[in-house]
Computed example of a mutant assay.
Amino acid sequence: MTETTRRTVVFGAGGAGLAAVLTACASYGSPTTEASAEPPTEEESSSEAPKKKKAEAKGGKALADTSDIPEGGGKVFEGQKIVVTQPTAGEFKAFSAVCTHAGCTVATVSNKTINCPCHGSKFSIEDGSVSNGPASDPLEEKQITVDGDKIRLA
């Protein structure tokens, strides 16, 4: 009679796990291309058309109301990684809220600067340029539209 050792059990379990991983990976490298993908059914196509038209009509979800952005200041939208400023009355600008120094999210807008809490970098609310280092590059400007009292990402 053959004796089953702990080593035999461990090797057997490891081999089974390896086989499962290799089987899963075998289909990983073959993405579906547009040419080989099946076209959507008529039902799928027609159900997406109203959604697309609604989104186009709205111009996207409003980021803020113009009244939310103080003149000479701004507001950070952490979830969208955007900061919107109003350098002068009725003039709205938007920038990435990701500091160009170390990738932290800027936290506040005060005294006409966008302020990063990590290392003290400050950026101009007018053009995103560096007002105080250690950052050396400006914040990336983002495109927005102002429609009535709504501010939207373009």
Rank of each mutant, 00 (worst) to 15 (best):
S136E: 14
F77L: 04
G90K: 07
V83L: 05
P87F: 02
S131L: 13
K81P: 01
H119K: 01
C99A: 10
H101Q: 08
C118W: 00
G120V: 06
G79Q: 15
T88G: 08
T105P: 00
F95P: 04
A107F: 12
E91K: 14
Q86L: 05
I114T: 08
V130P: 01
K112C: 13
D127S: 04
E140I: 11
V76C: 01
I125T: 04
I144G: 01
V109D: 08
G79N: 15
I114F: 09
T145H: 13
G133M: 10
Q86G: 04
H101I: 05
P134F: 05
F92P: 07
N115W: 13
A89L: 13
T105I: 10
V106I: 09
P134S: 09
G133S: 12
S96W: 01
E71N: 10
N132M: 11
S131N: 14
K112N: 15
K142N: 00
K75Y: 06
I144M: 04
K81S: 12
T85L: 01
K122L: 10
I114M: 06
E78K: 15
G120A: 02
Q80V: 06
G72E: 07
P134R: 07
I144P: 01
T108M: 11
F123D: 11
G120C: 02
G72A: 06
G74T: 09
P87V: 02
N115T: 14
F77C: 09
T100M: 06
A94F: 02
G90Q: 03
K75W: 08
L139Q: 07
D127T: 05
A94I: 06
F123V: 13
E140Q: 13
G72W: 08
I82A: 08
T145E: 15
S131H: 10
T113G: 07
A135I: 04
C99T: 09
C118P: 00
S110G: 11
V130T: 03
A102R: 12
I125G: 02
C104T: 03
H101R: 09
G79Y: 11
S136R: 14
Q80D: 15
V76R: 02
T88I: 13
G103R: 00
A107E: 14
G79P: 10
I82E: 07
C118I: 00
F95Y: 12
V130W: 01
Q86K: 09
